[in-house]
């Protein structure tokens, strides 16, 4: 079990957790993720690592309530426990001095892009960070983004904060202004990553995307996260999660990500109806544990 040392809301249905996980904290590098499970009948889901503190032995994750597990997780508070966390998973981001780098991140994807942005800036790149969100309530980590980048733009779908429009609008504007961009990283919803790729591929700008396919074990054992990259089948968990956008088949990724949609809705609905009871059950498993240990 892994103790939550700090839980706080950072945006609409978005929460940040600092969790005691010393092994992961020692090894984590930008671009990697974890898989967690909340209770005995819980599912395993992959989540972004925002940062870690090897000294304190903690990792920080950022979670948006979408399905049952993320919604349940976001009900947990400081002092609660997470049953299982494993990681760090996947290959770290490629860090090199590319020149000018554009990082495009959608909402909670910002958390995953942050450590990579930091590392790229430290490697001598001029980092242009374009954060997109639906509205002002979903803009997260603005100050941290500014700290990690050389140039920052915030875009909202409804124009309630920053500029109105999608992240690709800003990217197109910059390119239209004649800005030379040598490398792009896009982290966010699949349609957003595909849109970025459609902008950069014709221009031959090397673009990496961090894929969020459905996973179970995260160690290459099940193949559920397989994606078509070029003509080859790759496992997002062990071969990725970052791939060259120009080679990714986004249609297949979207299809596969929709595979359990009905069941995910059923699960979430059931949870919403029994929220307090399930939350109490999650907490009870650790109450027993603590008494047992004492």
């Amino acid at each position: 079990m892994f103790k939550i040392v700090e839980a706080r809301s950072v945006g609409f249905k978005i929460k940040q957790f600092v969790i005691e996980a010393p092994r992961i904290a020692r090894k984590q590098q930008p671009g990697q993720f974890i898989i967690l499970r909340l209770h005995e009948n819980g599912e395993r889901i992959p989540l972004t690592i925002k940062c870690s503190d090897p000294e304190a032995g903690t990792v920080t994750i950022v979670v948006q309530s979408i399905g049952k597990t993320t919604t349940l997780l976001n009900c947990l508070e400081t002092g609660d426990y997470i049953l299982d966390i494993v990681g760090p998973l996947g290959h770290p981001s490629e860090i090199a001095n590319f020149g000018t780098v554009a990082i495009l991140a959608g909402s909670v994807g910002t958390a995953m892009a942050l450590p990579t942005a930091h590392a790229l800036k430290e490697a001598g790149n001029h980092v242009v960070f374009i954060e997109g969100a639906r509205n002002t309530e979903m803009v997260v980590f603005e100050q941290e983004v500014r700290d990690a980048s050389s140039e920052t733009y915030i875009m909202t779908d409804d124009g309630s904060y920053g500029e109105k429009g999608l992240v690709t609008k800003k990217l197109n504007d910059l390119l239209a202004d004649g800005r030379k961009i040598d490398f792009v990283l896009a982290v966010g919803p699949v349609p957003m990553m595909r849109a970025v790729s459609q902008v950069t591929a014709p221009l031959g700008i090397k673009t990496m995307v961090s894929l969020n396919s459905i996973m179970v074990d995260g160690t290459g054992m099940c193949g559920g996260c397989r994606v078509l990259v070029g003509d080859k089948s790759k496992f997002a968990c062990v071969d990725g999660p970052e791939f060259d956008a120009s080679t990714v088949n986004f249609e297949v990724l979207m299809q596969r990500n929709a595979m359990y949609r009905d069941k995910e809705c059923e699960s979430l609905k059931r949870f919403e109806e029994n929220k307090e009871k399930e939350l109490a059950q999650v907490r009870a498993q650790f109450a027993n544990e603590e008494t047992h240990n004492a």
Partner: peptide, 22 residues
């Protein structure tokens, strides 16, 4: 087969929706 069996055995998907993994 690994994925199918892992979902059903390890993750107890045969109990869905009492177990979360579909």
């Amino acid at each position: 087969a690994n994925e199918f069996l892992t979902r059903v055995n390890l993750m107890r998907a045969y109990k869905f929706p009492d177990a979360d993994q579909p």
